[in-house]
Design a protein around this nucleic acid. Structure first.
Length: 842
RNA sequence: GCGGAGGUGGCGGAACUGGUAGACGCAAGGGACUUAAAAUCCCUUGGGCCGCAAGGCCCGUGAGGGUUCGAUUCCCUCCCUCCGCACCA
């Protein structure tokens, strides 16, 4: 055995051997309990960076632990291989995106293998292959059949840099999520949508099954879905003879309504313009406001602006006619695109009415004010009904109604119930639930994605591609310019086709799908990536699902993780699976930070794991990533810190190597009897560490403390080198302690651990061994050091046998702090068993 | 503004259910080995004070208050940082 630690040789040797032994290959086996560890699949950008490594090492440590606990472990990986960067690179270098993509995959696969990650490579899934994306198309057809896929002309977010449509989720602060300095523009395009809103309630309700998901993620999803309960109320515009429907969550404030606000895009605006006394002026103003409203998504806290239409609307509750305005802050996309303005009780309405001198009327007072008007907001007069002078800000809380006709005196809660029922009874309103969640726009004007399987026939209209004709394959010959419309539109042999229904000439849809479609179900495909007759193999899914542990970045909390849930619910409804949530437990790890920014290729601050592997070896990198911070926290990369991990592994190696020959010749390890104090110490330490790591792997996942304990064990062992050389630690006992250490080390430094394990005389790799059994008797301390406090201050320490009675401990404790008790009388003594003695004295 | 997480040595972090604050590592300083260096090994290392020394005392977990024999941990008030959402009616 080499006396020095040589990670390059060791790692190459074991990676080869693991592959030969098919160590990480798992097959469904109903007789065995399964465990499915899943990490989010990477986009093949070209290089893994250490941020990826962190994600995959967490999963790898868990997978190895579960193998050693006797589980049949599924631990797969794949490639999220469609997407914009490959297409952009292709445009730049005049190459085909697949060239770029497959070259990157090959390189990154090598990096993964260099790290020794325990993947079952037979199960690899690559989403840009027709064998995979044909099933995206299949799912599209199923969505279409069920009315979940539809086409509509819509204003879409358009990134001028990507030259494509962005999903709402891809717009951050009004800018493209990939180009933070590029404001998103708006365009009108015919788009395909998936009706995720039909699942809003289930996405919300079935979160109750996600008990092992971080609360943070569930909260973010809840906010994203944005359910709010309220009422729809119709206001009549008498001069038009037509009604406008508003949505409100605060129908209890409706007697305080002093105006009606429309979104500039509201369809009724055109009719108002047509009937207006000054149509040109109103049309021009409406257009101006619309444009300022568009910019509102870019500029935070845009000033409220609007224009009076000259029309009035009748409040159905009190018959009062209020002016109709167009207001820039009213969103067409939410609710009905029209709101009642209650300036006394809504801050936005308040600001708007302030700006334009519209009146304000208080109809809600705080419950504490006893139901009489008088406190905030319009406290100027006790006069009922009339408009009042302006206050500082709106009173937006629930309270008690005033100035509200028959509802005066009710609490807000009571009034909301009663007013909704009354509105329903009289036919001018109804209960309603609105969601912030919008349908998922899946069309992309891009080449490198899944073609949408739709044909447009001049005679038959929209015709889905028949299932038997799938896949609709991406044509290989395409000229990519990065400009304007979908690249596929310029490939005649792709576009021109025949109608499956009438056989006449027809055109294909030329948009491709959002790549979030690919990642919404890839983890099903791992259970059988060969099946050609269906997207998933039901038997395999039945055995392996749900995913026991999913690990990935928090940045996917609402995008991927909500689409993935949506997909599974659709799959349940079409009978593919018999459950509604695919992931039992989710872990979101922290980001890797370098120089104050998230590590990413686009920021140019990546640390290449291969460099680290060449310098220190994969084991050092892996151990360091887990040691330097708990996994859920952000991690600041430090070049210096990794040296410590390297030194530790070198020490561990040399220590075991020094004894390996002798221990190999030693028979079975034996914790033995009649242990000497040094022997006792080593075994105790080993079992204490074992206990901590075992519990930690099951629940807490603070791998940094696990590694710290392994370091302590090595420190303890090297302090006892003298005792070992002098025979005070028998080889059988030493072997028992060292073998436990090596087994535990294998979670974090698997190559080194297998090398050491072999040097101790074993021929099976550690993954096939059983996790050691914890022995509480060996772990127990013989002697305890107990701190003694006097009046809350630490005044002494005593050493006692672990078996000592509380009385005995108290006696010794008082004795040890005697000089601090001079002249005082002991009032009380608190003995916390095995922990502490606290003396109260006066 | 709303919601969430957090604030501990020079640094990353530990302290799991209220019980010795600073484990483990980095950095720094000192020493051994070496012709020298690297590597390795050993020692010191929260701040202040007393003592020749063994040792002892005081302060200290963002700030202030509270509960308790005892608070990094629980409660109240405030400050700061990070993350998410943000005209959603």
């Amino acid at each position: 055995m080499d006396p020095e630690y040589n990670p390059q040789a060791i790692e190459a040797k074991w990676q080869k051997r693991w592959a030969e032994q098919k160590l990480f290959e798992a097959e469904a086996d109903l007789a065995r309990k399964k465990y499915y560890v899943l990490e989010m699949l990477p986009y093949p950008s070209g290089e893994l960076h250490v941020g990826h490594v962190r994600n995959y090492m967490i999963g790898d440590a868990l997978a190895r632990y579960k193998w050693m606990r006797g589980y049949n472990v599924l631990h797969p990986i794949g490639w999220d291989a469609f997407g914009l960067p490959a297409e952009n690179a292709a445009i730049k270098h005049q190459r085909h995106p697949s060239e770029f993509t497959f070259a990157n995959i090959a390189r990154m696969k090598q990096q993964f293998q260099r790290l020794g990650v325990s993947y079952d490579w037979r199960r690899e899934v690559t989403t840009c292959l027709p064998e995979y994306y044909r099933w995206n198309q299949w799912f599209f057809l199923k969505m279409y059949e069920r009315g979940l896929a539809y086409r509509k002309k819509s204003r879409v977010n358009w990134c001028p840099k990507c030259q494509t449509v962005l999903a709402n989720e891809q717009v951050v602060d009004g800018c493209c999520w990939r180009h933070e300095d590029t404001p998103v523009r708006e365009r009108e395009l015919e788009q395909w949508f998936w009706r995720i809103t039909a699942y809003a309630e289930r996405l919300l309700d079935e979160m109750k099954e996600l008990v092992r998901w971080p609360e943070r993620v569930l909260t973010m999803q809840r906010n994203w879905i944005g359910k709010s309960a309220g009422a729809l109320v119709d206001f009549l515009i008498p001069q038009l003879g037509e009604g406008v429907r508003i949505f409100t969550t605060r129908i209890d404030t409706i007697y305080g309504c002093t105006a009606l606000f429309l979104a500039p895009e509201h369809p009724i605006v055109a009719k108002l313009v047509a009937r207006s006394s000054s149509p040109e002026k109103l049309a021009a103003e409406a257009e101006r406001i619309k444009n300022s409203a568009v910019r509102a998504r870019v500029e935070v806290n845009l000033k409220k602006e609007g224009i009076a239409t000259g029309f009035t609307a009748r409040n159905p509750f009190n018959g009062e006619e209020v002016p109709v305005w167009i207001a820039n802050f009213v969103l067409m996309e939410y609710g009905t695109g029209a709101v009642m303005a209650v300036p006394a009780h809504d801050q936005r309405d308040f600001e708007f009415c302030q700006a334009y001198g519209l009146p304000l009327r208080t109809v809600i007072v705080p419950l504490s004010s006893g139901g009489s008007p008088g406190s905030s907001p319009g406290e100027t007069s006790g006069e009922t009904g009339g408009p009042q002078a302006l206050a500082e800000e709106a009173f937006v809380d629930y309270g008690r109604l005033v100035n509200s006709g028959p509802y005066t005196g009710l609490t807000s809660e009571q009034a909301i119930e009663r007013m909704i029922s009354d509105a329903e009874a009289q036919g001018f309103g109804k209960r309603s639930v609105q969601y912030r969640l919008k349908d998922w726009g899946i069309s992309r004007q891009r080449y490198w994605g899944t073609p949408i399987p739709i044909i447009y026939c001049p005679g038959c209209g929209i015709v889905p591609v028949p299932e038997k004709d799938l896949p609709v394959v991406l044509p290989p010959n395409v000229r990519l310019t990065g400009e304007g419309q979908s690249p596929l539109a310029s490939v005649p042999e792709f576009v021109n086709t025949t109608c499956p229904r009438c056989g006449g000439a027809a055109r294909r849809e030329t948009d491709t799908m959002d790549t979030f479609v690919d990642s919404s179900w890839y983890f099903y495909r791992y259970t059988d990536n060969q099946i050609a007759t269906a997207p998933i193999n039901r038997d395999a899914v039945q055995y392996w699902f749900p995913v026991d542990q999913y690990i990935g970045g928090i940045e996917h909390a609402i995008l991927h993780l909500i689409y993935m849930r949506f997909f599974t619910k659709v799959m349940q409804d079409i009978g593919l699976v018999n459950f509604s949530e695919p992931v039992a437990r989710l872990f979101t790890q922290g980001m890797v930070i370098k120089d104050g920014a998230k590590m990413s290729k686009s920021k140019g601050n990546v640390v290449d794991p291969t460099d680290m592997c060449n310098k220190y070896g994969a084991d050092t990198l892996r151990l360091y990533m887990l040691f330097v911070a708990p996994p859920e926290k952000d991690l600041e990369w430090s070049d210096a810190g990794i040296e410590g991990a390297w030194r530790f592994l070198g020490r561990a190696y040399r220590l075991v190597a020094r004894h390996a020959r002798r221990l190999q010749a030693t028979g079975a390890p034996d914790p033995g009897s009649d242990l000497g104090p040094e022997e006792r110490h080593l075994l105790r330490k080993a079992h204490q560490v074992l206990r901590h790591i075992t519990e930690d792997m099951e629940e807490r996942w603070h791998f940094n403390t696990d590694v710290a304990l392994l370091m302590e064990f090595v420190n303890d062992l090297s302090e006892r080198e003298g005792a070992i050389d002098q025979g005070r630690v028998r080889p059988t006992v030493l072997k028992a302690a060292i073998e436990m250490f090596v087994q535990m080390l294998s979670l974090f430094a698997p190559h080194l651990a297998d090398e050491l394990w072999e040097s101790l005389g074993h021929d099976q790799p550690l993954l096939r061994t059983r996790w050691p059994a914890y022995d509480p008797v060996l772990a127990a301390e013989d002697e305890l050091e107990i701190p003694v406090q006097v009046n809350g201050k630490l005044r002494g320490r005593i050493r006692v046998r672990a078996a000592s009675s509380d009385e005995e401990i108290q006696r010794q404790a008082l004795h040890s702090v005697a000089q601090h008790l001079n002249g005082l009388s002991v009032v009380k003594v608190i003995v916390v068993p095995k922990k502490l003695v606290s003396v109260v004295a006066k």
